[in-house]
Design a protein around this nucleic acid. Structure first.
Length: 393
DNA sequence: CTTTTATATCGGTCCACATAATTCG
DNA sequence: CGCGAATTATGTGGACCGATATAAA
């Protein structure tokens, strides 16, 4: 990624779109993502001020900078001084929010980015026909109205806790999502986040966990694309869906094997935290975190993900060096099955949301007549017409 | 408990053709 | 080196098929 907007190549990029794996200036962001209903669904967030290549996850209020997980944990949180900085999670957004709405979401950032750095972009926005009123079809209206229901960005210190995440994760229709700054790999690899795992208070009565574990699986499998940067091509080369899927199924399934089902989970934990195995107290939260680690490796993550995690994919795929305590063996065997089912369903859904490189080709394929699923020559008999769904014979 | 059968799931393949990419003069 | 024409390569979606996994008998 360069220092310029991937689209116009002129302005300084401010927004990172995971679906497009692109850094965009504010103007181009709106331009590109107002093109159609699908693009409006792209989740975007601020660009990391430090590396300028990853989506920002948190805003350091002390330094007044937006940071991706990697920069936050490695560069920023690494120092004891900065580790105590107040951080504010940065929300993702979709749709085509107006500049006012964006400034409401990111009041801290838009002051600097928009007003100071991208005067032209702002001007561009005001001039664009696809502005707030321009994209006022029903879908966009929904998007924008839900944008107004923005989840508040609670102040936090490192580390964020499960409780703080829960409400952000609970809104199903919300198109504004927090970046998970509690990502597992990081959470077990950097000291400050150990609290997250060892905070037994969190699980004293088990209630939080019970609420969390299943929903967290949801978070894991549904939002990981939003949580991590995405690069379709790169990741398919690294880990295609089948790969992680098979890993999932062969190692995690069957759900009925309560005694051994956790074995496969351990390598994640043990390897990820190999630098400090004492961190890997196999708490239930850790298990949830582990599943999040999986999410970072599935289909549409990219090299940056692993960079973010600070763990190489190969390491993550390693064999389990030790077995978990038996207490975890009974962990949510039932909910695991349902979580897996939901994961598969969502994975299936994601396939429909695959990246289309050439929209024109898709548009054409969408209207091509077929015989048993195969394209037929123009004018020849067909058994399926996507437009009329009629047969020619 | 083992074997057989039925069912479900998954990935790969095929097709035509517009268009992107490459080659050539 | 740049340009235009010609050629080649690519990508797109739905249905099908074989391999594999899982469940049931």
């Amino acid at each position: 990624m360069g220092a310029l907007c991937d689209f116009c190549g002129e302005q300084r990029p401010t927004i990172y779109c995971r679906s497009d794996a692109a850094s965009l200036c504010l103007s181009c962001d709106r331009n590109v993502h107002s093109a159609n209903a699908l693009s409006r669904r792209h989740m975007r967030t601020l660009l990391c001020d430090r590396c300028a290549s990853q989506p920002a996850a948190v805003r350091c209020l002390e330094e007044n900078t937006s940071l991706c997980q990697n920069c936050d944990w490695n560069g920023h949180g690494a120092t004891s001084l900065a580790a105590g900085h107040k951080r504010q999670p940065i929300n993702c957004y979709s749709g085509c929010p107006s500049s006012e709405e964006l400034s409401r979401i990111w009041s801290f950032a838009m002051d600097t980015h928009t007003a100071a750095d991208e005067p032209n972009c702002e001007e561009g926005i005001s001039m664009m026909s696809i502005n707030d009123s321009g994209v006022n079809n029903h879908y966009a209206a929904e998007q924008e109205s839900s944008l107004l229901d923005i989840a508040s960005t609670a102040l936090m210190s490192h580390p964020p806790t499960v409780e703080k995440l829960k409400p952000l994760n609970s809104g199903d229709g919300m198109n504004l999502r927090p970046l998970a700054t509690h990502q597992p790999a990081g959470s077990v690899s950097v000291t400050p986040k150990v609290q997250c795992i060892t905070d037994e208070n969190m699980f004293d009565d088990g209630s939080i966990y019970e609420d969390f574990c299943v929903d967290d699986a949801d978070l894991t499998f549904e939002n990981y694309e939003e949580l991590f940067g995405t690069s379709h091509i790169q990741t398919e080369q690294l880990f295609d869906d089948a790969g992680i899927d098979s890993y999932f199924e062969t190692k995690e399934m069957p759900a009925t094997e309560s005694k051994e089902e956790l074995k496969p989970m351990q390598p994640e934990c043990s390897n990820v935290v190999s630098a400090d195995s004492s961190l890997c107290i196999p708490s239930r939260h850790a298990i949830s975190s582990i599943s999040l680690s999986f999410s970072g490796l599935t289909g549409e993550s990219n090299a940056g993900d692993h960079q973010d995690c600070g763990v190489s994919p190969m390491l993550l795929m390693g064999e389990p060096p030790w077995l978990p305590p038996g207490s975890e063996g009974s962990f949510a065997s039932g909910s695991r099955g349902s979580a897996l089912t939901r994961y598969k369903e969502k994975k299936k859904r994601r396939k429909f949301d695959k990246k289309i490189r050439y929209a024109s080709r898709k548009a054409r394929a969408d209207v091509r007549k077929r015989v048993k699923g195969r394209f037929v020559k123009a004018g020849e008999a067909y058994d399926y017409d996507p437009l009329s769904e009629t047969r020619s014979y």
